[in-house]
Simulated scan of single mutants.
Amino acid sequence: MDEQQRETGPVRVLIVDDHPLFREGLKVALESAEGVNVVGEAETVAAVPEAVVQCRPDVIVMDLSLPDGSGLDATRRLAEQELTAPVLMLTMADDDGSLLAALQAGARGYLVKGAGRDEVLHAVRTVAAGGAVFGAEIAGRITSLLAGTKLREAGQLFPTLTAREAEVLALVARGFDNHRIARELVVAEKTVRNHVTHIFEKLHVATRAEAVARARDMGLGEE
């Protein structure tokens, strides 16, 4: 199978994103190409498994940040339920931590929003055909991320975090609550809450449990 229209029919795409205007724009862009059909849409992690069963997509184009969790959670749930439609992440997050977490969750592709129509189409067709594809701006980082020893420093894994936020995330990954973190860092508990809020925003997660999962995927919290 190659990137041309498959003998069995057009590539069937499920779009998972919580922004209606973005979904509509992506749908128009994909369906403007021959041999690509958008067969369904979903807005939440919870809705993905049923949408996959109903729509039977060849590829899922998934955002990392969803209202009830992460595209990483959705990807893991698909694997747990033996729903094997391949996932192409299309997200605003371009940090190394998000990229590595997506790879570990089983995503077959990773593009940053803002990629051109032709790049997205190429990625959709490649992933649907069983390949893997990554945006040009991040492909060169994959080898260094996966080779050798796993990075352990939160600041290296999540470069969008400040040094203090990285410290807080490392303690969150160890299961510490805000009160315990405040004692460890000798700061006010309100300050810790503010740091946690900023961490959620920067990692595109919605819950503490998800932040812990992201951090532990990277090897944090094992002390």
Rank of each mutant, 00 (worst) to 15 (best):
M1R: 13
E3Y: 12
T8Y: 10
P10W: 06
V11W: 05
R12V: 00
V16H: 01
D17A: 02
D18S: 08
L21F: 12
F22G: 04
R23P: 01
E24N: 11
K27G: 11
L30H: 07
S32A: 15
G35Q: 07
V36G: 06
E41D: 09
E41P: 00
T44S: 09
T44R: 05
A46R: 11
A46K: 11
A47G: 13
P49G: 00
E50A: 14
E50Q: 15
E50H: 09
Q54N: 12
C55V: 06
P57M: 00
D58F: 04
V61G: 02
M62Y: 02
D63S: 03
D63V: 02
L66G: 01
L72K: 08
D73Q: 15
T75W: 01
T75P: 01
R77G: 03
L78M: 11
A79R: 13
E82M: 11
A85I: 00
P86Y: 02
L88F: 05
T91K: 04
A93H: 15
A93K: 14
D94S: 15
D95A: 05
D95W: 04
L99Y: 01
Q104Y: 10
A107Q: 03
R108T: 04
G109L: 06
G109N: 07
Y110C: 07
V112H: 08
A115H: 08
G116K: 15
V120Y: 07
L121V: 12
H122D: 11
V124N: 07
V127E: 05
A128D: 07
G131P: 07
A132Y: 10
V133F: 12
V133Y: 13
G135R: 07
A136Y: 09
I138L: 15
A139C: 10
L145F: 03
L145G: 03
G148D: 06
K150C: 10
L151F: 10
E153I: 09
E153T: 10
F158N: 04
P159V: 04
A163L: 12
A163M: 11
V172W: 00
F176Y: 15
H179K: 14
I181D: 05
A182G: 05
R183G: 13
R183N: 14
L185T: 06
L185H: 05
K190M: 13
T191E: 09
V192G: 00
R193T: 12
R193P: 06
V196S: 09
F200R: 14
F200E: 12
E201V: 09
V205M: 02
A206E: 13
T207Y: 05
A209E: 15
E210W: 00
E210P: 01
V212R: 01
R214F: 14
R214I: 09
R214H: 12
D217Q: 13
L220H: 03
L220E: 01
L220C: 05
